[in-house]
């Protein structure tokens, strides 16, 4: 990682190192926000473009990973809203990004611990989260058929199950 106060002097090699380190996490976050592959690609690219704009303004290079992941989520949420037909507000471009400390959980090591905890969850949480995690493009209708749950209950059940998993990982820490 560069040691300068800002990222102004970031060279191509250091940039590529950031892409290698964080590109996969950014993609996973954009997809976890519910975006299809084309929108997710745009959200990730948007985050890198925000980085290009902000090289002078990122004061804490140590937190650049959290900044990239948080920015990807901002762009993904904005694209998801627009896909649902909501008009962007006038402030759509003005949001300043504050790196979210929670972004640090987006990595494969935490993911492996989550899988162990997930296996200990009761049904239907165990199967539902497993299906949802392993099939990023699965529709609620498909999950409903596979698990024999009413389609209207998939969203709320998923939220409830995710909260259980979250409680477990917070205990585990």
């Amino acid at each position: 990682m560069p040691s300068e106060k800002t990222l102004t002097g970031l060279d191509q090699a250091a940039w590529e190192e950031l892409v290698t380190r964080f590109g996969g996490r950014m993609w996973a976050v954009a997809r976890a926000c519910g975006l299809g592959p084309a929108d997710a690609a745009d959200a990730v690219q948007g985050a890198w473009l925000r980085m290009v704009e902000n090289l002078d303004g990122i004061r804490d290079p140590e937190r650049v990973g959290a900044w990239l992941v948080t920015t990807t989520r901002h762009e993904a949420v904005r694209l998801a809203r627009r896909s649902r037909g909501e008009r962007p507000g006038p402030s759509a471009l003005t949001d300043a990004v504050v790196p979210d400390p929670a972004a640090s959980v987006v990595n494969a090591d935490v993911g492996r611990r989550l899988w162990l905890l997930l296996d200990g969850l009761a049904e239907p949480c165990r199967s539902l989260l497993r299906l949802y995690a392993l099939n990023p493009d699965a529709k609620y209708a498909q999950i409903s058929m596979r698990l024999g749950l009413p389609i209207g209950s998939i969203g709320p059940t998923r939220s409830r199950c995710m909260s259980r998993l979250r409680a477990l990982i917070e205990e585990d820490r």
Partner: peptide, 8 residues
Amino acid sequence: YLLAALRM
């Protein structure tokens, strides 16, 4: 973020 980590 947790869902992203599971998939990774």
